[in-house]
């Protein structure tokens, strides 16, 4: 039996819905982990069932809790609006047209302290499972169930080789790897799931690779 008993009994979560509440909190948390830098305002564009039923399921509260870094089973989750206000975080919700995306999807825009706008697209797949589908306009597919490395680079030969060589030299085994690009020679993106945690020194080495624009290790759970 390749399904764990803890998938059948679990997760521990704040109700009422694993997709609309627990999944939403997880999406917010994942998005904030991707953005890493401090932010002062967040805007949530809700789509599909998220847009239609968010009030009844506390999806809005869970999303805000998530970007504040709260976990989906924290009792404090329901007070997320109040906590955000105390921390000086502004937030708003609007209906977004994300045609073609999963029924439970959200576009999260972060306004950072440094004046940048960062945009994360994600879906809640049910049972608390999530999928990050876009980062700053670049389509990706990240479930973030395990250690994940996200690299944005130029589509040049040898870049992937140099990144994976750094991982190999640091005894980090690759579980899965997806490389996509906008078009030949344009921006490319690489999502690598690894069996072990990727340290900051390894990340610095990857960031030092020529043609790599951005590299980040993300782990949530």
């Amino acid at each position: 039996m390749d399904i764990s008993i803890f998938e059948a009994v679990g997760p521990l979560m704040i109700g009422p819905s694993s997709s609309h509440t627990a999944g939403a909190a997880r999406l917010g948390r994942a998005a904030a982990a991707i953005v890493t830098e401090p932010f002062t305002r967040v805007s949530f564009g809700l789509y599909g069932s998220f847009a239609k039923t968010y009030k009844g399921h506390g999806t809005d509260i869970a999303l805000v809790a998530g970007v504040l870094g709260m976990e989906e089973d924290e009792e404090e989750l329901r007070h997320a609006f109040k906590i955000a206000k105390e921390r000086g975080l502004a937030f708003d919700f609007y209906q977004a047209d994300l045609e073609g995306m999963h029924e439970n999807s959200v576009r999260i825009t972060f306004y950072t302290e440094s004046g940048r706008e960062r945009e994360i697209l994600g879906s809640s797949l049910g049972g608390g499972q999530i999928l990050i589908c876009g980062i700053d306009g670049f389509p990706v597919e990240m479930r973030l169930n395990t250690n994940t490395l996200f690299v944005l680079q130029e589509d040049r030969k040898g870049v992937i080789y140099r990144i994976t060589r750094i991982l190999a030299r640091n005894e980090i085994n690759i579980g899965t790897m997806t490389v996509t690009r906008e078009e030949k020679g344009a921006r490319a993106c690489c999502v690598i799931e690894t069996d072990s945690l990727i340290g900051e020194d390894v990340m610095d080495a990857i960031r030092g690779v020529e043609y790599v624009h951005q590299a980040q290790a993300i782990k949530i759970d």
């Binding site: 059948a8 009994v9 679990g10 997760p11 521990l12 979560m13 704040i14 109700g15 009422p16 819905s17 694993s18 509440t21 627990a22 506390g58 509260i61 089973d73 009792e75 989750l77 329901r78 049972g127 608390g128």
Partner: peptide, 21 residues
Amino acid sequence: EVNASMGRICAAPTAGACGIV
């Protein structure tokens, strides 16, 4: 009632059915 009030529950197998087990 705990689930609907945004309280802490254990999905078994889902949040909607969290009272039976």
